[in-house]
Simulated scan of single mutants.
Amino acid sequence: MSEVNGCLLPGDLWYWPEKHVWVRGPEEDGTVVVGMTDVAQHLAGKIVVVNLKAPGRALAQGKSAGTLESGKWVGSIPTPVAGQVTEINEAVKKNPAVVNQDPYGAGWLIRVRPDNWEEGSKILVSGAEGIAVYRAKLEAEGIQCQS
């Protein structure tokens, strides 16, 4: 786990730094898990409502997979890869604070079967490169996460 400007960034995930979302996978069944980064949950503040697109819905890359609401923000959850929603995290709908408490674990949002992982993942970064790209973005925008 890397820490950049107080923000936690696991090295084993794929990131779309511009949109503050992460992807884990692909899993053995070809699906990927999507969530928002520690950066995003810090910027949003305390999450109070999570609405997610239903399983079976087709999602276009960059389009909304659902919405999050906090005391100071309402926003869309951008889809990092095009595909079909196979599962949503019902636990975060019932207890949205889990997204703040554990954004990379219990706070995941949706599971997607990508239409074309090889093509879709080209906008994502991972490993040391991913951390470096995210570091540059946070520093350029002056973003700090507070514990």
Results as ranks from 00 to 15, higher is better:
I88R: 13
G71V: 07
T37V: 10
V81G: 00
G35F: 11
R135H: 10
I47C: 11
S126C: 14
E3P: 03
Q101L: 13
I47F: 02
L13R: 14
N116K: 08
G75S: 02
A40W: 06
G142K: 08
A58R: 15
I123S: 10
I88G: 07
S121K: 13
V21W: 04
G45Q: 11
K122W: 00
G107M: 01
D115I: 03
Q61Y: 01
V133H: 07
N89H: 01
Q144C: 07
M1Y: 12
S76R: 09
D115T: 12
P80A: 02
T79L: 00
W14E: 05
S70T: 11
W108L: 02
P103Y: 14
L109Y: 11
V4D: 01
A97T: 13
E69S: 02
K46F: 04
E87W: 01
T79W: 00
V4A: 09
A136N: 09
K72I: 04
V50D: 03
P78N: 02
L138P: 04
R24G: 14
H42A: 13
A140M: 06
S147A: 15
R111V: 12
G105I: 02
L109H: 06
E69F: 02
E118W: 01
P80H: 03
A136E: 15
P114A: 03
A136M: 12
C7G: 09
C7I: 08
G30L: 10
I88S: 00
M36K: 11
G62T: 06
G130T: 13
P78F: 00
V125A: 15
V99G: 08
E27Y: 12
G56P: 05
L43Q: 15
A106L: 08
G11P: 07
G130E: 12
S121A: 15
A40D: 09
R57Y: 07
V32Q: 00
A44T: 10
A91Q: 09
V125S: 14
D115H: 05
E28M: 11
A44V: 13
S147L: 15
W22Y: 13
R24M: 03
V99F: 04
K72A: 00
P17K: 04
S147M: 13
K122M: 10
A82R: 05
E139L: 05
Q61V: 03
A54Q: 08
T79R: 00
I110H: 07
W22K: 06
L13S: 02
G25Q: 05
S2K: 13
G75T: 05
Q61A: 10
I131H: 11
G11T: 07
G11D: 12
V34D: 01
Q101G: 05
M36S: 12
Q101E: 15
G6F: 10
A54I: 01
L68Q: 01
E118N: 14
K63A: 05
G56H: 08
N100I: 04
H42Y: 15
E69M: 05
N100K: 02
K63W: 07
D12Y: 07
A106W: 06
L8K: 12
L13M: 14
A65K: 06
S121D: 02
V81D: 01
W22Q: 04
L9P: 00
